[in-house]
Computed example of a mutant assay.
Amino acid sequence: MSKELDGRLYTATQVDPVFIFLPIFEEARMKKGDDLGKFRQLDEIMLIDGYPGYQDLLSIADNSMQLVCEVKEIGSSKFFRLDDSKVMGWLYHKVHQLKQTLLTLDNNYAAQDEKDTLSDAVSILGEYLKHDTWLQHLCSHLRLNLSEVTRKEAEKLVPNIAESELGSALSQEKNKSNNRSTRAGKQPKKAKVETESRNIKEMFSRASRRKN
C-alpha cells in the first residue's frame, strides 16, 4: 500500500497468474482464422524481448496455465497451446465465483436483479482482460449486453479520473499558496561574509609562539 502526495491511495492485491499469462499465450499460439494455432514449449512462449524476468515465472506458468491450455508431452518436453473452450470455462467459473462474493460483500447486490449482479461481475473481470475478444465471448455465453458491461467499466474509470484531477488541482493550489506566502513575507537575511577571517592554522601558530 502506498499513499501519494495528492491524497491518492494505492493498494496491491493478489491476482490469478492466468490473467497475466493469458495475453502472452494468446499471442504465442499464432492462431489464424479457424486454425487452432501452434503448440510451443514453455520457455519459448515466455521468452519476451525486453522482459527477461518472465523466465523466472516458468514454474508458475507451468502450474497455472494447464487449466486453460491443451498440453502435449513428448519425452521430457512439454508443449502448450491455449484452448478457447478451457479459457471460457475458466472465465465462466471466475464470474460466478465473483458474483457470489459480491452478494456477501454488499447488501445492495443482494437486493438488485441477479442479471445485473452478473453483469457487474463480468464488468469487474473485464478490467483484467487485455483482449476484448474474451469479454465478447463471455457476454455472448452469458447472454449479456456487451455495451452495457463496457459502459459500467467506463463509469468506474470516471471517478478515478476526477479524483486524480482534483488531487492534482489541490496540489497545484497548495504550491501557489506557498509561493504567495513566501513573496508576501520578509526576505531571509543574507548571511554576512566574514571579511577579516584568518587562517586557523596561522592563528594557532601565533598562539603557540606567544606561549613560548
Score class of each variant (00 low, 15 high):
132 D>L: 11
44 E>F: 06
94 K>S: 09
49 D>C: 06
86 K>C: 00
119 S>V: 02
175 N>D: 12
151 R>D: 01
68 V>M: 01
190 K>N: 09
143 R>A: 03
124 I>N: 08
64 S>R: 04
117 T>G: 15
43 D>W: 02
35 D>H: 04
137 H>G: 07
193 V>C: 05
65 M>G: 03
144 L>P: 04
16 D>C: 10
133 T>Q: 09
166 L>M: 09
166 L>E: 09
40 R>Q: 14
28 A>E: 01
1 M>C: 11
120 D>E: 11
121 A>Q: 07
174 K>S: 05
50 G>N: 04
157 L>F: 13
65 M>L: 04
155 E>Q: 10
31 K>C: 00
123 S>D: 07
182 T>H: 10
116 D>L: 15
168 S>G: 12
175 N>A: 15
211 K>L: 14
51 Y>L: 07
196 E>M: 14
52 P>Q: 02
45 I>H: 01
4 E>N: 12
184 A>S: 10
40 R>V: 05
58 L>H: 02
173 E>D: 11
197 S>Q: 12
17 P>M: 02
26 E>R: 05
13 T>I: 06
162 A>W: 06
153 E>Y: 09
170 L>M: 06
89 G>S: 07
114 E>I: 08
95 V>G: 01
72 K>F: 01
171 S>V: 12
40 R>A: 08
44 E>P: 05
107 N>P: 09
49 D>L: 07
73 E>S: 01
150 T>N: 03
118 L>M: 12
33 G>V: 00
158 V>M: 15
40 R>T: 09
91 L>F: 03
74 I>M: 03
9 L>F: 13
189 K>T: 12
40 R>N: 03
126 G>I: 15
161 I>L: 13
76 S>A: 04
179 N>K: 12
39 F>Y: 05
3 K>T: 12
141 H>W: 06
105 L>Q: 06
67 L>K: 08
200 I>M: 08
18 V>W: 04
74 I>P: 00
77 S>Y: 13
118 L>C: 08
181 S>H: 07
57 L>W: 05
198 R>S: 13
7 G>R: 07
192 K>Q: 11
44 E>W: 06
161 I>N: 12
166 L>C: 11
146 L>Q: 03
90 W>T: 08
135 L>V: 09
98 L>H: 08
61 A>C: 01
78 K>R: 13
65 M>S: 01
144 L>G: 00
78 K>Q: 06
140 S>M: 13
180 R>P: 08
155 E>G: 03
99 K>P: 00
117 T>C: 15
35 D>C: 02
104 T>P: 13
183 R>S: 12
167 G>E: 04
49 D>N: 10
106 D>W: 00
20 I>A: 10
132 D>A: 14
26 E>D: 07
37 G>V: 00
